[in-house]
């Protein structure tokens, strides 16, 4: 398959509505019916099965959650060795707690008193689903994707996160190859690991909240 940069003539018009028999009216169908027809066709073609599709959704809803990312962060806050692993090889750190991150490089970026990190995918919505759960609507929105790279401080204000002027904001643009997990600053107080994990939110792991 050609790379993203290529735009040869053969690509022209490829997404106009297909005209193959039985496939020409999909634009007019309500979207749910269109999906059902697509599912029927790919199952009939032997490309997947209903059982496989159900298992994927079960696994997603059961296993993919921001609780997983929060556990990694809380462990890093309480275990210096784990923190070192997380910051140097985040895929290994995820695996150590039993979380899968296959097919991409995971990089953990740690907030400090001087630098706050925030993650976006300007191209689409690349994101470590297994550690954060399905992405929130705002992460996929054109407004977030377009603006956080240009005016991160203003966007974070819209989330209710006001950073001091002397805190630098680092914006990480995720891709299919590299995805990011923000390690927020540890809350004050001598809390046990489980309570620390409970403080960490999905927004904190993306960088649109302090924790």
């Amino acid at each position: 398959m050609s790379g993203r940069g290529e735009r040869s003539g053969e690509h022209d018009g490829l997404v106009t509505p297909p005209t193959k028999e039985g496939f020409d009216d999909h634009e007019d169908l309500p979207v749910a019916a269109r999906v059902r027809r697509l599912e029927e066709r790919v199952v009939a073609a032997g490309l997947t099965t209903d059982d496989e599709l159900d298992a994927i959704l079960d696994g997603l809803l059961r296993n993919a959650s921001p609780v997983n990312g929060a556990r990694m962060v809380a462990r890093a806050w309480t275990d210096p060795g784990y923190r070192e692993t997380l910051l140097s090889d985040a895929n290994a750190a995820a695996a150590e707690l039993g979380f899968g991150t296959s097919g991409y490089r995971l990089r953990a970026v740690e907030n400090t008193p001087a630098v706050h990190n925030v993650v976006v995918c300007t191209l689409c919505s690349c994101y470590p689903v297994s550690l954060l759960g399905p992405s929130p609507g705002w992460y996929r929105s054109f407004a977030y994707r377009s603006r956080v790279v240009r005016e991160p401080r203003a966007v974070l204000e819209e989330f209710g996160l006001t950073l001091p002027d002397d805190v630098e904001i680092a914006v990480w643009d995720a891709s299919a190859e590299t995805r990011y997990l923000v390690v927020p600053r540890r809350p004050e107080g001598d809390l046990p690991e489980e309570e620390l994990a409970a403080r960490v939110t999905r927004r904190g792991l993306i960088g649109t909240a302090a924790v």
Partner: peptide, 26 residues
Amino acid sequence: HDVGGQSGFGPVPVGDEDVEPFHADW
């Protein structure tokens, strides 16, 4: 694809937090 830096999309819909991962079964 790359909407990074473009303007005109308005404020971020911060309330769209997806308590449920999908809006519809499809």
